[in-house]
C-alpha cells in the first residue's frame, strides 16, 4: 500500500468509527431525557423572587412516567426531575405531599435545614421539624462539591394521614395533599441535585434505598441555576 492509500484507510477508519460512535451517542443522549424543564416563575411584584411547585406521590399513576404509571407503576416519585431556577434569586417552593410515611433512619431529616429563616410552613403552620415517625419524604438539595459554600436544603415532607381520596390525577386517586412551603436563595449558576432521604424505595436488605431511590427521575432530580 502506498502512503496516500494508507492515509485513505486511516481517514475512512476514523470517519466510519467516529461517525458510528457519534450516532450511538446521539441515540443514547436522546434516550435518556430529562423531563420537561419546570421553570421557576418569576414574581412580577418582587424582584429576584420566583415560585415553583413540586409534588410527591406514593405511586407513578399520576402519569409523570407515562400512561398507567409507565414501567414501574408502583414506584414512589417526585412530579418532576428537572427544575430550572434563576441565579441569585429567592425560590419560593411549594411541595404537595400525597404519600404516607414513617421513621426516617436518620432523625436529622425530621428537621428543616438550610431554608430562609430555618423554617417551613406545613399547611400554613410554621415548623422547624416534624414529629418523629411522621415524615413521608424529604426534599434534600445539595450542590456540586468544590464551589465554596454549597447550598444545602433539607425539608421533611410530613406523613399524609388522609383517608379519603378525592384527588384524581392520571389513573391514580390521592388524598388532599399536605402542602409544604419554604424558600431558599440561590447563588451563581450551578447544577444542584435533590432527592429524598426517607427510605421509601424497595430493596433486598430492607434499607429502602433500592429501586425508586436508585432510579433517576423518581425520588431524585436536578435543580439547574441559570
Amino acid at each position: 500500500m502506498d502512503r496516500s492509500k494508507s492515509l485513505g484507510v486511516a481517514l475512512v477508519s476514523v470517519l466510519l468509527g467516529g461517525g458510528a460512535l457519534a450516532l450511538g451517542g446521539f441515540v443514547l443522549a436522546s434516550n435518556t431525557p430529562h423531563q420537561k424543564a419546570l421553570q421557576c416563575i418569576e414574581s412580577s411584584t418582587h424582584s429576584h423572587t420566583c415560585s415553583v411547585t413540586l409534588s410527591t406521590f406514593p405511586d407513578s399513576l399520576e402519569g409523570v412516567h407515562g400512561a398507567n404509571g409507565g414501567p414501574h407503576p408502583d414506584w414512589v416519585t417526585y412530579s418532576n426531575d428537572n427544575v430550572v431556577v434563576p441565579a441569585n434569586t429567592t425560590v419560593n417552593m411549594t411541595i404537595d405531599q400525597y404519600d404516607t410515611g414513617g421513621n426516617v433512619n436518620n432523625p436529622f431529616f425530621d428537621s428543616v435545614v438550610g431554608t430562609n429563616g430555618g423554617t417551613a410552613a406545613v399547611n400554613g403552620k410554621v415548623v422547624t421539624h416534624v414529629a418523629l415517625g411522621d415524615t413521608g419524604h424529604t426534599f434534600t438539595l445539595r450542590g456540586i462539591p468544590g464551589n465554596g459554600k454549597t447550598l444545602f436544603v433539607s425539608v421533611p415532607l410530613p406523613y399524609n394521614f388522609g383517608t379519603k381520596f378525592p384527588v384524581r390525577l392520571g389513573t391514580g386517586t390521592y388524598p388532599k395533599p399536605v402542602v409544604v412551603k419554604f424558600s431558599f436563595t440561590t447563588g451563581g449558576p450551578a447544577v444542584y441535585e435533590f432527592n429524598c432521604e426517607f427510605p421509601c424505595g424497595g430493596s433486598r436488605e430492607g434499607n429502602g434505598f433500592g429501586e425508586a431511590m436508585q432510579a433517576f427521575g423518581y425520588m431524585s432530580g436536578t435543580i439547574t441555576v441559570k
Binding site: 436508585q214 436536578t222 439547574t224
Partner: peptide, 11 residues
C-alpha cells in the same frame, strides 16, 4: 464538562 449533560448519573 461539569454537570450531567450527555447522560444522567444513572446511565
Amino acid at each position: 464538562t461539569p454537570g450531567t449533560h450527555f447522560v444522567n448519573q444513572q446511565v
